[in-house]
Write a protein that binds this DNA or RNA. Structure first.
Lengths: 222, 222
DNA sequence: TCGTGTGAAGTGATTCACAGCG
DNA sequence: CGCTGTGAATCACTTCACACGA
């Protein structure tokens, strides 16, 4: 293979399957747990066993991005954590907003896990005058009409959408024209966005449907 | 191909890739939208375009489960909705519980979307005496010590876990020994469960990490 | 010796392309 | 003629198996 042996190679060595990236997140989660337990190194087979994947898969996944392992030793946990964070782009912090301060939005605003991984929610938006002007966990709630101004002034990069399905596309369009580069959509609709904009959809009903299927038909492997 | 030409064939015609099932949920979502707009039929290419998949993919996905289309016509929306619901197992209703009534749990208890798709949350559990005994959207909150009794008495089938990561495995074990058959885990840990138990994990931090990656590296297709 | 990194082989999913039906 | 259902071909991902480094 080409790609020189410098360990800090440029990131997008080649087109990476999305499923590999999703496993990276899981590796990261396990590595943090291992560190909490006092482990300093881990082998691909150990890490794989924790997640139900093969050792070869772990190594191949990581090899998309560089040479992080130490033959005979395995991977140093803290080192690999740093590498994966760099790969995912969570070594820096991201400035995030939330549009929709209903039940779901409020719950997410109060969730501490985001900040721990470098996602700083700095503003929220809603159209209900009863919440506009309030703060939730120190995060100010603005009227939706302020969307563009606030996003530009605060240099917000990512948006989370927790408005009703009927409004989600319109909100997404506003986010895009305000300069946001990525969206997590919790509304149960398919958004259509410019290619350039990153998009992740989370539909909780869909998740329950997957579960119902796997229970109703005991013939899927996860 | 074997499999006789009766349209209502037995469900698990063969081992179905998980990704096919997840698209089924999305087809369902689009079909409902189409019906709302007054459409009565849809072709595989139209349905595919709405979701960014090919027409062949739509047809192949559905063909895992039967012959639902009408050559020259397409698929009748209401018919296909019924078929997909039957396949997913959401034509009947599921009895669900929620363990953990923090921010996330409360938000999900208040979310109306679940009931609409046949998921009836009938009980919630927490260990905080301030919420035990209260009701959220008419759903009673019991002390966690009551878990087994309530699950058995109410014949609860599915559980959603929204407790802190440190307690998730223990809660999952309790759910399993109480007779639950499927779990949606919102805690950011990998659960280990018996093969027989259905499991879907939703980790919101992980989702944001996927987004960060796709924004930081503009080389993934979704 | 243990465990990584990686070509090669194998498996699985997607797309192609077309016969056949309404 | 439009559109499904589906083998065959292609493309993508995973696993195998082994050379090599510490």
């Amino acid at each position: 293979m080409p790609s020189p042996r410098n360990k800090l190679q440029a990131l997008p060595s080649r087109d990476v399957p999305a499923v590999v990236v999703s496993r990276l997140s899981l590796y990261l989660r396990e590595l943090r747990q291992l560190v909490r337990e006092g482990r300093s190194t881990v082998s691909s087979s150990q890490l794989g066993k924790l997640l139900g994947v093969t050792d070869a898969q772990v190594r191949k996944d990581l090899a998309y991005f560089g040479h992080f392992g130490h033959p005979g030793i395995g991977y140093r946990c803290d080192e690999l954590i740093a590498e994966i964070r760099r790969i995912l782009g969570t070594d820096r912090s991201w400035i995030v907003t939330m549009v929709g301060v209903g039940n779901m939005g409020r719950a997410l605003l109060r969730y501490k896990g985001f900040a721990e991984q470098g996602f700083r929610i700095v503003a929220a938006f809603d159209s209900d005058p009863r919440v506009v002007g309030t703060k939730i966990e120190d995060i100010p709630v603005y009227d939706t009409s302020e969307l563009r101004n606030v996003i530009r002034q605060q240099k917000i990069q990512l948006g989370m959408i927790t408005v009703p399905a009927t409004q989600a596309q319109q909100v997404a369009d506003q986010l895009v024209t305000s300069g946001i580069v990525g969206i997590v959509n919790f509304a149960p609709v398919t958004l259509s966005l410019p290619e350039k904009i990153g998009l992740v959809g989370v539909d909780l009903t869909t998740e329950l449907e997957q579960l119902a299927f796997s229970v109703a038909n005991r013939n899927v492997r996860r």
